[in-house]
Design a binder for these strands. Structure first.
Length: 227
DNA sequence: CGAGTTTGACCTGCGC
DNA sequence: GCGCAGGTCAAACTCG
């Protein structure tokens, strides 16, 4: 069984959006077709896979399926294209029974345990890391990010940059670093799921066109009946 | 002047 | 308990 077949069989088709509803710049993707992760990624060039992964993988990962299925799906989807590779995904859930109070850091919470209060990291929903061959580190994925940290990491000559979605109330984060073994690759890790639409969302017939801005601008204005 | 970036300090988890 | 490494905070700074 091929990878794309396996994904398509395990994800309810109706929940997987067409990345290029109409008109789309990739003729091999049919408007009538629903897409698996591999399909979604195949519809993007490597500059826009950053956007596609940040938007669609969280949707795929939210679908009801056993954790081990999700893991095998994405860890074995080793080569989505020549340029991009999914490295890891979803974090495991926590099973603590009592949230006590919100600490300074909104990504953590204090829970009751036998020895008193313990500060634990909250489940962010999903974590996706992928590797993209690119000259630039910051690719336009349609969302607005605010940098909040930079750190040199062990075994890598390149610094790791920390970004947080700048939309109020959205706790999605991403880490960006160049691959220590091959600096022509950028490793991007998304953590969490956006609770809002992309600020660069374009509408066509009241349906959202899910492009990064740069792709949207490549379309002819006459293709939009309303914006 | 507001929004975003930089960067040193601080916090936390983990291995020994 | 200690030290290290990764992650985050926040004041200072930059830029439009």
């Amino acid at each position: 069984m091929s990878n794309s077949t396996f994904l398509a069989a395990n994800f309810p088709q109706s929940k997987i959006p067409n990345p290029h509803p109409h008109p789309h710049p990739h003729p091999h993707l049919d408007d009538q077709t629903s897409y698996s992760t591999t399909h979604v990624m195949a519809g993007y060039d490597h500059y826009h896979q950053d956007f596609a992964l940040s938007k669609y993988l969280p949707i795929l990962l939210e679908l009801d399926q056993p954790e081990e299925h999700a893991m095998s799906n994405f860890t074995t989807t080793a080569s989505l294209s020549q340029h991009s590779t999914v490295l890891q995904e979803r974090s495991s859930g926590s099973s603590f029974n009592s949230i006590n109070k919100v600490p300074r850091n909104p990504t953590h919470m204090q829970v009751k345990c036998r020895s008193g209060l313990k500060r634990v990291k909250m489940d962010v929903g999903c974590r996706i890391a992928f590797r993209t061959k690119s000259d630039i580190e910051i690719m336009d994925d349609g969302f607005k990010w605010r940098k909040y940290g930079k750190k040199m990491v062990k075994n890598s000559p390149n610094p790791r940059n920390y970004y947080r979605c700048s939309t109020q109330g959205c706790n999605v984060k991403k880490r960006v670093e160049r691959d220590g073994e091959d600096s022509s690759y950028v490793i991007t890790t998304y953590e969490g799921i956006h609770n809002h639409e992309s600020p660069s969302m374009v509408y066509c017939n009241q349906m959202p066109l899910s492009f990064p801005t740069t792709t949207a601008w490549t379309l002819q204005p006459s293709h939009y009946s309303s914006i």
